[in-house]
Nucleic acid binder design. Structure first.
Lengths: 111, 111
DNA sequence: TCAGGTACTTACCTTTTTGTATGTGAAGAG
DNA sequence: CTCTTCACATACAAAAAGGTAAGTACCTGA
C-alpha cells in the first residue's frame, strides 16, 4: 500500500488486498475466527513474520479485528470485520474464475 | 508469476492479474482495442518499459492478443481475448467494491 | 530441568518488482 | 536538416516485498 489516489476502484481494491498473502488470510478467516497459531497452520507456507505483518496491515485497513484474551497462555483471535467480509464477497467471482481456469493458468510458461 | 501449483482459485487468479499494472491494462482494453501509444496515454503513469513488459506477459498468459500491421509508421493493436474478457468480468465486483469504499481506502494510514 | 506451546519482535539478507534513461530505425512534418 | 512519432529494447539503479533465523517472556507437562 503506497498510493493515495486511484484511477479506478479496482486499483484501490488491489492496493488493499494485494501481495502474496492477504487474500489467502482473508479466505482462511472466512468461516470462523482463528488464533495466530491456527492461522499460521492454515495458511501453508507463511512465516510468522509475514503473517503478523499482513495481519497488522489488514487491521489498520479495517479488514480484520484483533481480540486479545488476557490469559495464560496468551490467546489472540483474528476475525473478519463487515468490511473484510464485503471484500471477501467481492473476491468470490475472481476465485471462481481462477478455479475454472486453473489448468490453463498452470500451463502458462514461466520464465 | 512464479508458481505452478495453487491452493485456491484466487491464488491462481492473482498470479495472472497481479502486480501494479495488469488490471489497469485490462480495464483500458475493455472497451476497444488500443495501439501501444494509445495504451501508454490511457494508463496514466506507466512507463514504456513496464507497459511492454506487462503486455508480453499478458500475451503469453493468453489474456491479450497482439496484432501487427505491417505499415509505415508501424501499427500494433492490442485487444482482449475471450479469456481476457472473462477475467475482466470476474474483476467487476472487485472494482465496484473498490469504487464503493474508495474514500475509506484512501483514508487508511500508510506506513 | 528441559522441551514445547503461546504470540509475537528484531536484525539481516535475498529476490522481485518497478523506475529512469538512453538507443534504434524508418518516415513524415516543418 | 532537425524534430517528432511509431513501437519497442536494453542497461542500470532504486525500491519494495519476501524469507531466515534468532530472541523474548511466560507457563505447562514430563
Amino acid at each position: 500500500m503506497k498510493k493515495r489516489t486511484y484511477n479506478c476502484g479496482l486499483d484501490a481494491a488491489v492496493d488493499v488486498v494485494g501481495g502474496k498473502w492477504k487474500a489467502l488470510i482473508l479466505w482462511a478467516l472466512h468461516h470462523e475466527p482463528l488464533r495466530f497459531g491456527e492461522l499460521r497452520r492454515s495458511v501453508s507456507g507463511i512465516s510468522e513474520k509475514m503473517l503478523i505483518q499482513q495481519l497488522r496491515e489488514m487491521e489498520t485497513s479495517g479488514l480484520v479485528h484483533r481480540e486479545v484474551y488476557h490469559q495464560v497462555p496468551p490467546k489472540v483471535e483474528y476475525s473478519l470485520t463487515d468490511f473484510g467480509r464485503s471484500l471477501n464477497t467481492a473476491l468470490i467471482p475472481l476465485g471462481e474464475w481462477g478455479e475454472e481456469h486453473m489448468a490453463t493458468i498452470e500451463a502458462i510458461p514461466r520464465d
